[in-house]
Write a protein that binds this DNA or RNA. Structure first.
Lengths: 237, 237
DNA sequence: GCTGGTCTTTGATCCGCGTCAAACCCGTCC
DNA sequence: GGACGGGTTTGACGCGGATCAAAGACCAGC
């Protein structure tokens, strides 16, 4: 049952608006936007679908318009780790690598603008401003990855789960009425794959938060944060 | 006792050659190289010195010519984690962030070409090829960080230490005669800060490798890998 | 209704690694 | 020489989270 997903932050707007908000295109003027639209392919992709397989040569690149994706790296013994989550506005794919190092899979039905790598690279040749935006975004992603290195190596399971929930709330909240209420776009085992924990440990920690009255679990995958302060306290440990 | 450092992979060459090999400048022609030299300041920095403090506004940027640096991020409770090591040819600093998110400190006396951020950014405006190199390097660094996320969250102390030694050997080996022999540029506690382990655990694992005959510790901080295959075996676990 | 499948929760047990503590090694200084 | 002091090694012990195992939830299909 994945009909309870409400993760798209807003109903899809017109293609142009959506793309203009993205990392790649906010640096382009109208004429250039038209050019990049000419090579872009708007597509909706269902949950579970894989956009990029590890090792793909010439994998796609895209802008994520709505939905959530996971970036998965396989360990040697077939145990996977989720090294990144992608939200609306994020750039998908590796423009320059000659083969993809990670698998990218859809968590919530997603809208994408897909670009052929070669064509996109060509557009970037003429638009250093867009390329600089990609650079800044790559550095921001690196910063994020390093933040997670700290969390993964130093924090306890308690703190990991609390940190994760705060992070997800920040990115998924309907900015509107119901602050602190959102639907997790992923299963417990996928949360474990993000945090480097087993599914059982994740479940125990989430239950502990519910029992302590810090969160509520109205059902399905939805989560309500009742006590932000105490949750933040656990995350800091 | 840091006279035993032999970490510079080769005796320093002339400034021009050294810089040409680096990430930043291999895309420039001779005239542009001259321009970038004009804004660069060649300096030698002793071990222990701090190049960038967390929070610095307008921190330096530089190319590392020889030596090894560590990139340290502080956790909330004053426990530090080393989120990256920098080797000759690597780019130092954050060109675009308005305040540095990490502290950068010298492990082995280092030669650097230091650039003022504003001037360097200005040079990049006119050299998209150089900027693209920075982008590719940022993506490579991100890839590395994600590799470490896997290691930190999934591997045992045994595997972490083995992986670390293999990595250091790859980067520090005199490519010449003595393959598998190198001097660690850091203390046990710094190794712990890289691997997310305590100093005691690092010590125990290193000792275990020595007892098993997989490595030898001739003294000081030097390490000899006697059995690459078994070391790789432990790293895979 | 019942049955089979997947995901989640809960319990019991084990072991790896953090913690605390003490000894050791190898410099420098007096 | 002996006394320091920082880094390293070794030991004893306890706890957090993995592992193994089983019981619920919840849904799909019949």
């Amino acid at each position: 049952m994945r009909s309870e997903r409400r993760t798209a932050v807003a109903p899809p707007r017109c293609s142009t608006c959506a793309v203009r908000d993205s990392a790649l295109c906010s640096a382009l003027d109208d004429g250039d936007l038209a050019r990049i639209h000419a090579i872009g392919l708007r597509r909706t992709v269902a949950a579970e679908q894989v956009l990029v397989w590890t090792g793909d040569r010439n994998a796609i690149c895209a802008n994520l318009v709505s939905g959530v994706l996971k970036v998965v790296r396989a360990g040697p013994d077939r145990q996977d780790h989720i090294v990144g989550l992608l939200f609306p506005g994020d750039f998908v794919g590796e423009l320059f690598a000659d083969s993809a190092s990670d698998t990218v899979q859809v968590l919530c039905d997603a809208d994408l603008c897909i670009y052929p790598r070669a064509a996109l690279r060509h557009v970037l040749d003429d638009h250093p401003a867009a390329e600089r935006l990609l650079l800044r975004r790559a550095l921001a992603t690196l910063n994020d990855a390093r933040k997670w290195m700290l969390i993964l190596s130093r924090k306890t399971a308690r703190a990991k789960v609390a940190t994760f929930l705060i992070d997800m709330a920040r990115r998924l909240d309907d900015a509107g009425a119901a602050a602190g209420k959102f639907d997790l776009p992923m299963s417990r085992s996928e949360i474990g794959a993000v945090l480097g924990l087993t599914i059982e440990t994740v479940s125990r920690q989430v239950t502990a938060l519910r029992v302590a009255g810090i969160i509520a679990l109205p059902g399905g995958r939805s989560v309500v944060i009742r006590d932000h302060a105490r949750l933040a306290g656990r995350a800091a440990a």
